[in-house]
Simulated scan of single mutants.
Amino acid sequence: MKKLLEVTNLTKAFDESGPVVDALSFSVREEEIFALLGPSGCGKTTCLRLIAGFEHIDQGSVSIAGEMLGSPTKHIAPQDRGVGFVFQDYALFPHLSVIDNVAFGLTDIPKQKRNVYAEEVLCRTGMGDYKDRNPSELSGGQQQRVALARAIAPKPKLVLLDEPFSNLDAMLRESTRKEVRAILKKAGMSALLVTHDQEEALSFADRIAVMNEGKIEQVGTPEEVYYHPKTQFVAQFLGRTNLFWARASGGSEVHTNLGPMNLNCKAKGNVLCSIRPEHLTLEKPTTQHPDEIGTVVAREFKGHDITYHVQLKEEKYLVHTDNRVIFEPNDEVVIKPLESAVILEGKN
């Protein structure tokens, strides 16, 4: 699949405290939904604004479909980049009807045809019946779809989404997310989503770049970054995990507090490892060595699964099991790995 957006060594600083975006490089393919995921203040929204042309680039470049749009010596205006933008607060014009909001940016279409085309786009987003309403008469999810319709109506090469679901409640957020993804896929558009919500990125994007302090720590599919994190930050930011040090002797197995455990690759020396709580389970002690027996100190019943907090020697471990694995606080248990531990980048 061809690359549509190319970001190369993108750098931006607003003062002498250092760059907010620090030599960022990544690409977005045609018809791909890509997410920049990271905590507040990591530079992801600044990156989006640099791509959109709302900010000037200090170093590096932004290209779309092979055309250079931004660099330290070149700056194409936002309206001339062929990019759609969905803001966090939707930014709909309150004095215009829904259809007039969508038709507003259709300057390349003859005036008498704009409303016809705008209505077609609204129908594609399920908002055709609301064309004559004002934004104040719509729910948050409906406003979101109108904002998306306005962004895709001019047929941009790329749609930029800045925390677009953060103002919706949990249930509406999930349904709107599914609807927006389906609309983008049906339209065959590329999109770049900025979010701090791990679940949102994992369920919405085809690929994810995990950002931390202005840099990208890992890029991959949702499955790759979740199951095979490269760094401690990625492992912890994408969900709960168990971290531990182990001594490897060159093979793909180490001995840990939990007993022998497989690694995702061969290693030698002290290695920092991660294993997700759902990749562990609990069993009753049988013939285990006393050092491998832990104690349940707390449990969180969640209906479809249970999270156990287990004390083993000086360490606490999290274990997610299905609701058929039943233990109570103070029960003695043995923690058993179901998958290999993942080696993280760290000091030996």
Rank of each mutant, 00 (worst) to 15 (best):
E6T: 12
A52M: 07
A182Q: 14
L148A: 04
V20C: 07
G214V: 10
N330P: 00
A235F: 02
R49I: 05
R299S: 14
V21A: 14
M68C: 15
E345Y: 13
E32C: 02
H228P: 00
E199H: 09
Q288E: 15
E67L: 11
A35Q: 02
F54W: 02
R81H: 10
T241D: 04
P78K: 07
F244H: 07
M261G: 01
E315M: 13
M189A: 12
G294W: 00
P337A: 08
V146G: 02
D331Y: 04
M261W: 03
R145L: 14
L106R: 05
M211T: 03
I343A: 06
V121Q: 07
N348Q: 12
F204S: 04
R49M: 13
E67C: 07
N212T: 01
G346A: 15
D305Y: 14
G141E: 02
V296M: 02
E213G: 00
E283Q: 13
G250I: 07
P337I: 04
P94W: 00
I51P: 05
F104E: 07
G251L: 06
E314P: 01
I51L: 08
E137T: 00
S166N: 09
F93S: 01
V121N: 05
F93R: 03
L48K: 08
A182H: 13
P94S: 05
T195M: 09
R150M: 06
L193F: 02
L280F: 09
N323E: 12
V98T: 04
P222V: 09
F165M: 06
R276G: 04
